[in-house]
């Protein structure tokens, strides 16, 4: 992010034990990079009274114990951290994820983009994607961003359940499910890759800032 000055985030309470550092109310590459970078800084700072630092798509939730640190004091520490240096670019790990591109909505998505099924798959896998955030459900990851040509809105109807390992597509992003969830995103494929295993610590393999290279499963 070179020497570009980070926009001052909004610092607000979330209940009486949470502090949210919000870098945007809409999702952008810059807001997401600021959130992921700030979360790493806040984690490394080991702030007193903080029990959890959670990066989201464009914000960071800090859970704290108010008997150890009050909101105003923590907000002050957060402001100092935000302005201390420019946003670090996270050098995430790179993962390869093999996908069987045969989802129920693949033809429809290719038609919206205006290309053949195989051309869509090639476009989808052309560049590695960044893990934008884990959220919505255990191990569920948002990955982005695809180029503008691959920006397709969500489906009008919600599927009440798709299984773990479903590869979803909408809003210029790809997502991977790790549990059974309802979704309004397009189902484009399936993967053996599982990003949630509660029998190991940590229970997920992908972290915000990591890169994922999608491959066609053979």
């Amino acid at each position: 992010m070179s020497d570009q000055t980070a926009p001052l985030p909004l610092i607000m309470p979330l209940g009486d034990r949470g502090l949210l550092v919000r870098f945007g109310t809409t999702l952008s590459e810059a807001a997401n990079r600021h959130a992921v970078g700030f979360a790493a800084k806040a984690e490394a700072a080991s702030l007193s009274g903080v029990v959890d630092v959670v990066p989201n798509l464009a914000s960071v939730l800090i859970r704290y114990v108010p008997s150890i640190v009050e909101f105003e004091r923590l907000a002050g520490e957060v402001r100092l951290l935000v302005s201390a240096s420019e946003v670090d670019t996270i050098d995430g790990r790179v993962h390869a994820v093999a996908v069987e591109f045969a989802g129920e909505d693949l033809d429809e998505v290719a038609a919206i983009v205006g290309v053949s099924r195989s051309a869509f798959v090639a476009m989808h896998c052309a560049e590695p994607l960044r893990v934008l955030a884990t959220g919505f459900a255990p191990g569920f990851v948002y990955l982005g961003f695809h180029p503008e040509a691959l920006r397709v809105p969500r489906r009008a109807a919600v599927r009440s359940q798709v299984p773990a390992g479903t590869v979803l597509f909408a809003a210029g992003q790809t997502a991977i499910t790790s549990t059974d969830i309802p979704t309004g995103w397009h189902v484009i494929g399936r993967t053996e890759f599982r990003n949630f295993d509660p029998t190991v610590e940590p229970p997920t393999r992908l972290a915000a800032g990591d890169m994922v290279r999608f491959e066609v499963a053979r």
Partner: peptide
């Protein structure tokens, strides 16, 4: 249409 964001108990 809101950006998905953090939830805390009691929300």
């Amino acid at each position: 249409s809101l950006l998905s964001d953090a939830i805390v108990p009691g929300d």
